[in-house]
Nucleic acid binder design. Structure first.
Lengths: 332, 332
DNA sequence: GGGACGTGTTGACACGTTTTAATTCAGTCG
DNA sequence: CGACTGAATTAAAACGTGTCAACACGTCCC
């Protein structure tokens, strides 16, 4: 059994290869009877179209690239779900790449995507240097930035982290807190800095001085980072309420406080960020800021495919979603 | 700027297209001076090799497919990490597909992979019907089953779930438990059934009757399923110890018990399965059964690529890993 | 009955790369 | 000095599909 191509199918159905191609790509242009004959031949021979030949001929593939910072992060998993749903609706495929926050890996990934001649790329960049993307954009590949606000000449979809920080702290203040702590990763990370900015805005709105919010910076944004932050807090006077830059940090804080005999929310109120699935299942269900992650992926993909389909009459858009406050036991 | 191909590079470097191809694929065969000239031309023109043309010519691409049941599941995320590390070491790419436990989506995914002419496929099948895979195997595409023990004519890599169940219950018995509960999802799921089988084996080994282990079956294997199970247990006489078929269930149980004033591990010991990241961060750190997920992905990929490289002298292997007991507070 | 028209179908070529056999050339040995 | 060797390079032939201009064949209208 040699490889069965469009030619063998054509021969078996008694038509020309061109007709088989039409059946595959524009079925409406071929007479019903002929089409039926071709489709039967396809089934009988177990023909599977050669995607690379199609891509080669067309100049671009029916695939888009998705480059994320960390496939293990629930945030990106949710985004990916949104992406995949749209993409499969529109009969495309998605090539998922993981940059692991390394610019070098990001570069490798982008090269592979360029070689594959993807139609477009969704990417959460590892840093502010967008020049790596020019390589693609020069070749006419559409690009949409995900969770990274852009300035002008490119589409972007993100969530308002300043508003999120504001929401969280306004809620804590509303609940009566007057001395707060902000547990965060490095402030060089845009998300951390923006959420802090929002938190301070909430303080101002409530007429409180900036020193009412103490920063606790830890190197790693996971549960052990949270435990470390809790240690620092326990060493001094405990604040009324704690705002954590993500849920993993908050869970670490929660556990360390519980072990030290501090009650949440009676002694200290606590709120996280991201609303990961596990937050509602924690020992004390965690209040959090929910981001429209699925929507993020969905809208970004629609934007991207629209740009691909009409590269001429396309105006770049910067879309920013608003996050949402989810109140649970930890700050009730 | 028209598309720049191998031809333009050749012209600029003053060589033939064949030489450029050699520089790309077998650099050692071309004289150092020529190579330098070609490489400079590549840089100057910003040439990016067209992967589809290469794939078309070669008959297969330098990519493998990975079809998982659920991209959101930490188990598969860890497997995917193992896969990607090996694959990128060997200079290949991985196309990640999500079947979402739906045989129909699985079929679509396999079709796309076939069209892309992948070299091989790693798959956790949605059901026992492996006929969908024949479509690929007939075309000479290597297949390795992941987390799904196979019988004979195909490679497989899995973890011994019976041994895992045995480990968990043996540990609980060792700790003094005499009346136990097994909180699980539908027993039609192979993993659930196998872990139960192992649990019963541990009972026999300890000389206890099967009725010492009560089954609590819930429809969903997540935290709310665990809460539901806990309700059922609280309605009767509490057992000494609870074995949960996965960590999310265990976390749900833990929370519901705590709310009811039951202390873990003093009143009831608790152990989960999978050892997901959150388990160690729970209010009461959770004992669990750890599976070598990363290894699973790594070995599966090596097996697959070996089969691809030497399709002739390849003997199918069925590899089964042993899980590992991780003891934490919840069963100390 | 002839021309215009529309629907289906065809044939040939192009897409960009890899590969194989052939060719060139400098150096070596008999 | 000619034949041979081996290394470096080349020319040409695929790979399988999509497209597009051309063509066949009825049908309708004047």
């Amino acid at each position: 059994m040699g490889t069965v191509g469009i030619r063998e199918v054509a021969q078996r159905a008694g038509v020309s290869p061109g007709t088989v191609s039409n059946v595959l790509n524009r079925p409406e242009r071929v007479a019903a009877a002929t089409r039926a004959r071709v489709e039967q031949a396809i089934r009988e021979l177990g023909f599977v179209r050669n995607g690379s030949a199609a891509t080669l001929r067309a100049g671009q593939s029916r695939a888009i690239g998705l480059v994320v910072l960390d496939v293990g992060n629930p945030f990106f998993v949710a985004v990916a779900r949104g992406v995949e749903d749209v993409v499969s609706d529109r009969d495309h495929a998605v090539i998922l790449c993981n940059s692991g926050e390394s610019p070098e890996r990001e570069g490798r990934n982008l090269r592979v995507l360029a070689e594959q001649r993807v139609r477009g790329v969704l990417i959460t960049p590892t840093d502010e240097d967008l020049s790596r993307l020019d390589l693609l954009r020069q070749r006419g590949v559409a690009v949409v930035l995900v969770d990274h606000p852009a300035t002008g000449d490119v589409c972007s979809v993100s969530v308002d982290d300043v508003a999120g920080g504001d929401l969280a702290v306004a809620h804590l203040l509303d609940r009566g807190a007057r001395r707060l702590a902000y547990v965060t990763g490095p402030l060089a990370i845009r998300q951390c800095a923006d959420r802090r900015k929002g938190a301070r805005r909430a303080l101002r709105t409530a007429g409180l001085p900036a020193r009412a919010l103490e920063d606790v910076v830890v190197p790693e944004m996971n549960a052990s980072g949270g435990a470390l932050a809790a240690e620092k807090l326990l060493a001094g006077d405990l604040p009324d309420a704690i705002f954590c830059a993500n849920d993993l940090l908050a869970l670490g804080v929660l556990r360390a406080l519980s072990q030290a005999g501090v009650r949440v929310p009676e002694d200290v109120a606590l709120i996280g960020y991201d609303d990961i699935e596990f937050s509602s299942a924690a020992a004390v269900p965690l209040s959090s800021i929910r981001q429209p992650t699925y929507q993020l992926g969905k809208i970004a993909t629609e934007l991207l495919l629209d740009e691909c389909d009409a590269p001429a009459g396309h105006a770049h858009q910067q879309i920013m979603f608003q996050p949402e406050l989810v109140i649970r036991e930890s700050s009730r």
